[in-house]
Design a protein around this nucleic acid. Structure first.
Lengths: 139, 139
DNA sequence: TTAAATGATGCATATAATATGCATCTATGA
DNA sequence: TCATAGATGCATATTATATGCATCATTTAA
């Protein structure tokens, strides 16, 4: 079981942006800065950033002196919501997918309820945590 | 986020074997029967069955009149344990993988603890459920 | 004793999902 | 008006997963 790498990168970018917000005054960070810091291809990070903008976790400003910042205070951005937005599907098992419904015991199978409960428990735990709860430890 | 198909198939096979146990006397089911019932390639189902045997969820008997049965009563086989055995890794995020440790903020990042808690919550929910708790509904 | 039935194993290939890169567009401000 | 920055769409590479094939090992009924 794994999340896709984009979810991982999104959280790393957000953690960086949350750290920047603590500075006085905070700067806008560029995609180039974030991708170089994390040693990730700029193109790849760009996709992730775009998704974060679409979902209103961060605001982007184009042009010279442009860049990115959190669109809300860090304690209002829940890890669970980020994961929900970045994962492109939640088809834990075949019967969760509207496309793939070939399971022969689908109507009478109770298993789907169990997995729904487990998934809820997983996300509920992530919802307990905001960006403000996971500051980078300073040495 | 998804489990691999083998985990799904393993559970479907186990559900069938648990149903068979209710018959008097119960028969041994063959891989061929199970794979044809679920309309899955026999080869593919065989891999799954082998893993279930290795992990002592079921017992296999070779030769004529051979087949498969649960190695324990259905109420002693927890869904969580099956999922643990079938999923080949639990690298939810990069920093969980011993091989891939490229994250620049790894030592000071708190995120891993959050994901550990979420994963525990997910599996704890599955541990609440045994094969006996998910009988096929009879019409 | 042997042949058919059954599971076990290793390797090869196909398919699908994901990651990555490239080219080009749009917006901003010095 | 040009350099800088994000936005978007498409193409390709890589990886993980699913699937198939061939062959071996074990059991037991005939």
């Amino acid at each position: 079981m794994q999340l896709n790498q984009q979810t991982d990168l999104a959280l790393r970018a957000l953690i960086l942006l949350a750290e920047e917000e603590k500075n006085n005054p905070p700067r806008l960070l560029t995609i180039r800065e974030i991708s170089e810091f994390h040693r990730i291809s700029r193109n790849h990070m760009m996709k992730v950033i775009n998704t974060l903008v679409e979902n209103n976790f961060i605001e982007a400003k184009r042009g010279q002196n442009g860049g990115l910042k959190l669109s809300r205070p860090s304690n209002e951005i829940r890890v669970g919501d980020v994961v929900r937005a970045l994962e492109n599907h939640w088809n834990l098992v075949e019967c969760f997918s509207p496309q793939r419904q070939n399971c022969q015991i689908l109507p009478s199978c109770q298993l789907k309820h169990v997995f729904h409960r487990a998934l809820s428990a997983f996300l509920a735990e992530l919802d307990q945590c905001t960006l403000a709860d996971i500051p980078l430890k300073r040495p």
